[in-house]
Design a protein around this nucleic acid. Structure first.
Lengths: 161, 161
DNA sequence: GACACTCTACTCGGATAGTGATTGTCCGAGTCAGAAAGG
DNA sequence: CCTTTCTGACTCGGACAATCACTATCCGAGTAGAGTGTC
């Protein structure tokens, strides 16, 4: 049950975007160069974020990606779901359908208590992720590492040269 | 981030074991036949459960698997960890090590606030799973589906023929 | 009749292929910016 | 000098391989029990 590494990339990239001036698109190549990541593959993750409505993309010169909403309205769950997809971690193949006394009409995803217990855990996980916005994360970083935002912006302007 | 289907198999198999007489080993072939699963592959999952100390295995005739402890002392987290491994879902590759101003001596798994936020969610998930024991699940099933335990035992004795 | 030995059948256990998702890369469609030409 | 057109480079977007984990299977090591021969 390993999460895609794209989630980590997307998290840090979205966080970086919160510090860059709004209304200005940043191309995937520069976002990738920041962490020396393969640009084409990061682009793929950014596409997923764009499809999910987390970032907006503009093609052409001076184009790139930017946050589609204010950081207050982007939760960590939004980012994870954009990359990993909406389906829950536990996969219920309705094993009970193959057991004795199975009713083909029953939806065992709802009836099976194992499935329900796993879903409870899944919801707890999602609740925790949905409770933190990108703005919260940004504020935490600014408090704990005050130099970080400045360094980030400087590095990006340097890449702009 | 799809969980292995072995988790579902392990959950239902362990639950079935709670209803069968204690002190009596059940071979993997019978546990598999209950849900018409591939016996060799379920055996693999049971091996993982045995390595984790959730079930105990005895070879030879009249051998098989049985719960290693009472259901009260087996949490759902124990089963999930046995199959999926102990590492957390979010994979922190310490991206910040590749960013500007990175300190090679810093453990970014602890310092990175993204990593910490994801770990919080992971812990919430684990807490929920650790809060439910196999005995709880068994009791819930017996209350909601009183016929289920009897059906299970009957089916197993039928397979014994 | 009891005991010891052998032999067989049964079980787990790890080593071994097959398959699908994830990872990584590439090139084409579309678009904006800037230069150049004309008024 | 301003406007319009054209060109060109830049960007995303989806289509195309490579790699890895998961899925599935098989056969060998070990064991308990039944059967047989002996005392």
């Amino acid at each position: 049950m390993r999460m895609s590494e794209g989630v980590e990339w997307a998290m840090h990239t979205c966080l970086n975007l919160t510090w860059l001036p709004t209304g200005q698109a940043v191309p995937a190549a520069k976002l990738a160069a920041f962490y020396r990541l393969p640009a084409a593959y990061l682009n793929k993750q950014l596409q997923a974020l764009a499809r999910a409505g987390v970032v907006s993309s503009t093609p052409g010169p001076r184009g790139g990606f930017q946050l589609a909403r204010t950081p207050e309205k982007i939760t960590l769950l939004d980012i994870v779901v954009a990359i990993e997809g909406p389906e829950e971690a536990f996969r219920c193949d309705e094993l009970l359908k193959r057991g004795p006394g199975a009713d083909p009409k029953t939806d065992y995803r709802q009836a099976c208590l194992v499935s329900r217990a796993m879903r409870r855990a899944d919801l707890a996980w999602r609740r925790e992720l949905a409770g933190q916005t990108l703005a919260d994360l940004k504020a935490d970083v600014e408090q704990e590492y005050p130099a970080s935002p400045g360094n980030t912006v400087n590095r990006f302007t340097a890449l702009r040269a």
